[in-house]
Amino acid sequence: MLQKVAARIHPTTWWLLAIVLAVIAGTASALWQTAAIGALSIALILLFRENATWARSLGFYLTLAAAVIVIRILFRMVFSFSSDEDQILFHLPALTLNLGLGEINLFGNVSLRSIMGAVLDGSRLAAIILAVAIANTLANPKKLLKSAPGALYEIATSVSVAINLAPQLIESFNRVRRARSLRGRSKRTGQLAGILIPVLEDTLDRSLLMAASMDARGFGRRSAQSAGELLAARTLGLAGLVLNLVGIFILLSGFNVALALVLLACGLLSAGIGVRITSKRNARTSIGRTARTGLDFLIYLACTLALVINFSGLVGV
């Protein structure tokens, strides 16, 4: 039942949700916030995941998230010393190293506050990892590639060709390795090149055939686009990137975070319009494309709200 709902949700929606949750997790300042995002992510994955290969990696992400927290605590114990006022848990012999690049303080007192800080820091990355896991386990990568913007259609096709090709390649490797043994050991080229070259040659030949057949079936058709439109799209793209760059500078200088965020948003808008114009040259249709439904827009609304609340709290508006 829920799986059917999940299949109707647009793959890009899962990605947007994942990125928004990751951003919120990254700005979280209390353990309960990161824990809540982590729990929400796990719950979403368990509720909505389908039985497909890409959906079976939750265990991997959980292990990774736990490992991140553990590594963070170890780092804090090794590299950080606590001040005297803290509640000291235990002592380790203090060491100071100097590699000529400034002093490194190792071990020393380990306080409860520093361990708790490490847990919070670690849980932040752990929550981000789990949030991204939503996208990876719930969005069908092939559907995602199909909903790439028209401007990226060619590259997306090439990526999906690569995904389809990979299993065949492993077969080719095995076939060539077997055939290789018939020839006897050559002194000219290493074993690796002796296998890699035939596989590469063979796959390249096949892919050129494939490209020919795809082109003969209409791949590469573009509707005519005026030079003016193309120039407009490129200019908008450039303007967007410039705005982004300035936004990043302002963000890093600490001058005004709110201004930086506004600049970044404007930059994205401008670049987005540019991409939209370039995408128009594609008159393609798609048989498998999932349309966005009300559910998707509901999720977009929720994401926008969450972001606004999150950042207005942080920036102090």
């Binding site: 401007a151 990226l152 096709t157 990979a166 796959t203 390249l204 050129l208 793209g237």
Partner: peptide, 24 residues
């Protein structure tokens, strides 16, 4: 955005085929 910049250049089916193979 960077990929779009490259994709709007002159990218033909054949380069894409080679790209797909090498990526795989």
């Amino acid at each position: 955005l960077t990929l779009v910049e490259f994709a709007t250049g002159d990218i033909g089916s054949r380069q894409l085929a080679i790209l797909g193979v090498m990526t795989a």
